[in-house]
Each structure stands twice: as structure tokens, then as C-alpha cells.
Simulated assay, not measured.
Amino acid sequence: MATLLVLYLIFGSGMIWGYTKSKKDPRKPIPKLMSIICAVAVVMVAILSPLINAGPDRVAIEDQYRNSRLQKLAADLASQVTGPGKVLVIHSYDVNNERSNQHLQRSLAYLQKGFAGKANIEKLINPAPPSKNPDEMEMMEEVTGEQLQAVLESNADCDVVVFLSSLPYGREQLKAMEIFHMPPKEADKGYVEDSYPEFDEAKLPVVGLSVSSSVRELKSFIKMGRIDSAISWNPSKDFTQVTNPPASEDLNEWFDQRYLLINASNVDALDGQHGNLFVEPKPPKKK
């Protein structure tokens, strides 16, 4: 926009100057010629303004970043699945809103491509109630640990669970989900309440998180393998910049410019490299 204003100012001033001078002395050809040239230039600037004012396609750039992280996440999850896995995707997109649903469908396509035939997306669930106005992208209600646990229990036939939305923040909320259950020690059995007395870790699904804010307090669960793969912002990168994306089509370059793939094999190393990657979970508030 600033470039256009400068061009209009320059050529407009030249046109006015030439016209004024030629009116005072019609015998001088230069002012008249200047006026004509500047008038033509103003018209050309108006015609070419979409190209002059064109900036980076931020929507396309952000979509490519999303493509890179979802394919990377799915590929890592696929390496941990034996046989063709059934995938449950838990999301927060409003499917009643056209634009939101388009975002969801693209995300699913990127995930499916990353699974490379080793797992198939079979179920989609948004635990939050749908919006009342399909013409607006409303803020979705916060989902509780109890709601997510109910979703997991009713879809126990799925081998892989991908969270496209953030998990509830705080250990008290996470405790309501079996994948975060910590069985009591032998010495404590009978003295402490066991939320899942028939807990069998071998039956837990492969779990992946896509850029969830709650990743920061999940180091211990990633290390244990309860969270098999998680995508996090790379705190060493300026991921807010979209004006200088990678020139290459290589999705690995796009991914590395913004994100980190975290799993049990690298969580300690990444924590050592990035001092603010994880935080200690806050203790529950005293009642």
C-alpha cells in the first residue's frame, strides 16, 4: 500500500505540474509531454496495482507449515503401529462452519498422507458442542478431561489417537484420562484411591499431539511413552515470521523452521537444548 501511495504521489504531482505549466505557456512542449506521460503512468499503476501491492500469501504459507507438521506427526506415529491401524482424530473444528470445516478436511488429508497406508483415519470427534451460528467461527467451549476420557472409552477399538486440539491444562484435568493414570505403588495399594484398578498399559492407544500448549507440562508422560509423538513450537525459532518461508518444497525444511518432533527417544536431549521447552506442572490448588 505504501508503494502505491508513493507512485501515485510522484506521477500525480508530475501530471499536475505539467498541466499547469502547459496552460501558462502552451508553446513549451516539455510540460505538456510530462503531463501526458504522468497521466499514462497513473493509469498503468492503477492497472498493475494488484501486482505492485502483492505480498506473501499468508494463508498458503500457514497451510504449508501445517502440512509439514501433520505429515511429520503421522509418519512418526505410523512407525509405532503394527498392521493397518484405525485412527481416531479428536479436534476442535466447527464442522457446521464452512471455513472451519475446510481447515479440518485439509488437516485430515495431510495426516492421512503422512500415515502412508500404515493407518487410516476412521473416526472424527469434536467433544465440544457445535456452534449455533454456522456463518461465524465461534470459540469452542473448553473440553474437560472427563469428556475426553468418555470419547476414548467409546472408541477403544482405535489403535491411534491424534489430538488436533489442546489437552486440558493442569494435572487435575489430565488425571481424569486413563492415558495419564499413574497406578499406585505396591506400598500404597489399599490406602490410596485407584481410578483405574484394571489399568493395562499395553491396551493404551498410540497417542499423538499436534502443537498443543499442554505439551510443555507433559515431559514425564512423553518419556514414559504415554504420549508417543508430540509436535511443539521450537523456542529457538521465530515462528511468527511468514514473510520469509523456505524457498524449497521440502516439507522437512518447513517443519524445521518452526517445530520440534518430540518422543521418548529424544525428549531429554531436546529438553537440554531448549531450556524453556518444558515446565514443571503446577500442584493442584488447595481447597
Rank of each mutant, 00 (worst) to 15 (best):
139 M>S: 08
16 I>L: 14
272 G>E: 12
253 E>H: 11
80 Q>N: 11
106 R>S: 14
221 F>L: 03
280 E>Q: 15
78 A>H: 01
132 K>H: 13
199 F>M: 04
89 V>G: 00
209 L>W: 00
53 N>D: 07
183 P>V: 02
43 V>E: 01
228 D>S: 12
258 R>V: 06
185 K>E: 14
275 G>S: 14
36 I>A: 08
84 P>L: 11
263 N>Y: 07
267 V>K: 05
261 L>Y: 10
124 L>P: 02
135 D>W: 06
79 S>L: 12
75 A>C: 06
142 E>M: 11
223 K>R: 14
77 L>H: 03
61 I>G: 03
100 S>Y: 02
44 M>T: 07
76 D>L: 05
140 M>H: 07
46 A>H: 03
57 D>P: 01
28 K>P: 01
38 C>Q: 02
1 M>W: 05
150 A>I: 09
238 D>P: 04
280 E>D: 12
185 K>R: 15
284 P>V: 14
168 P>S: 08
64 Q>K: 15
149 Q>I: 07
173 Q>K: 14
285 K>M: 13
177 M>A: 07
50 P>L: 06
106 R>N: 15
186 E>H: 05
39 A>C: 12
44 M>A: 14
254 W>V: 04
22 S>G: 05
48 L>F: 08
160 V>S: 03
272 G>S: 10
99 R>L: 10
46 A>I: 04
118 K>V: 04
235 P>V: 10
33 L>Q: 11
283 P>R: 11
94 D>H: 02
62 E>F: 09
73 L>Y: 09
150 A>F: 03
95 V>F: 01
20 T>F: 09
256 D>A: 14
69 R>I: 02
39 A>R: 00
146 E>M: 08
242 V>P: 00
117 G>C: 11
185 K>Q: 14
231 I>V: 09
166 S>E: 03
32 K>N: 14
237 K>C: 13
104 L>N: 02
243 T>R: 05
201 E>Y: 08
81 V>D: 03
192 V>H: 04
167 L>P: 02
117 G>T: 11
158 C>E: 09
192 V>M: 10
62 E>S: 11
105 Q>R: 15
56 P>E: 08
123 K>F: 03
152 L>K: 11
133 N>M: 06
172 E>L: 06
261 L>A: 15
118 K>P: 01
122 E>H: 05
218 L>T: 01
67 N>Y: 13
279 V>R: 13
143 V>L: 09
60 A>G: 15
76 D>V: 06
254 W>K: 03
61 I>H: 05
13 S>H: 00
235 P>W: 09
64 Q>V: 11
240 T>L: 08
45 V>I: 08
64 Q>D: 12
253 E>Q: 15
45 V>H: 02
44 M>G: 04
203 K>E: 12
132 K>A: 15
104 L>H: 02
80 Q>A: 09
183 P>A: 04
73 L>S: 07
232 S>P: 02
238 D>H: 10
266 N>P: 10
105 Q>C: 04
145 G>I: 07
93 Y>C: 00
183 P>T: 08
46 A>W: 02
80 Q>G: 03
250 D>T: 02
261 L>S: 14
215 V>F: 04
8 Y>W: 11
154 S>I: 10
204 L>P: 04
94 D>Q: 05
171 R>M: 12
263 N>I: 09
267 V>Q: 03
149 Q>W: 01
39 A>L: 14
